[in-house]
């Protein structure tokens, strides 16, 4: 029934026996205990579960843990550096009040990082399009857009 997987999460190696149907988000949250990534829907449309797998932002609710076998995963818990210094997208969200209830925030941070990794100085339109896979019900997105802009500036 179960299969053995080995992954690296936020730089640390893990090995577990898992059911093939175990979703990556449930693996991260319930097996590994990293509850920063959230579940907001079943249909891959809210983005709250976004993590990086081998450098690519993906929705971990739409991937089985077994598919990640051997992969290197980055979650919101691993965004800050080893000394605890926040990543520039975290700084941006903090300074620009890019969050309210905080539930969508981990996914927003992860996708914002991907936006900036690929395009260091995006336009407002490019930021908004980049956030297309992530829903926020609190902010109306304006402060999130400003947060990404601030993070972009901090990276220059």
């Amino acid at each position: 029934m179960t299969q053995t997987i080995s992954v690296t999460i936020n730089g640390k190696p893990y090995t577990h026996d898992v059911e093939p149907r175990l979703l990556l988000i449930h693996y991260l949250r319930e097996v590994v205990g990293l509850t920063g990534s959230h579940i907001g829907c079943e249909t891959s449309l809210c983005g709250a579960c976004t993590v990086e797998v081998d450098g690519r932002a993906i929705k971990s609710c739409t991937m089985f843990a077994v598919q990640a076998n051997g992969a290197s995963i980055l979650t919101v818990e691993g965004l800050a550096d080893a000394s605890g210094k926040m990543h520039r997208v975290q700084e941006g969200f903090w300074n620009e009040h890019g969050l309210q209830c905080g539930f969508c925030t981990p996914g927003m941070l992860m996708v914002s990082k991907q936006i900036l990794d690929r395009n260091p100085s995006p336009t407002e339109t490019e930021i908004r399009e980049g956030l297309d896979g992530n829903l926020c019900r609190c902010t109306g997105y304006q402060h999130i857009v400003k947060a990404v802009q601030a993070a972009a500036k901090a990276g220059v």
Binding site: S44, G47, T50, I58, K59, Q114, D132, G133
Partner: peptide, 9 residues
């Protein structure tokens, strides 16, 4: 297609 995350996968 879809969004960044969907296109990545």
């Amino acid at each position: 297609i879809g969004d960044i995350q969907v296109r990545n996968r």
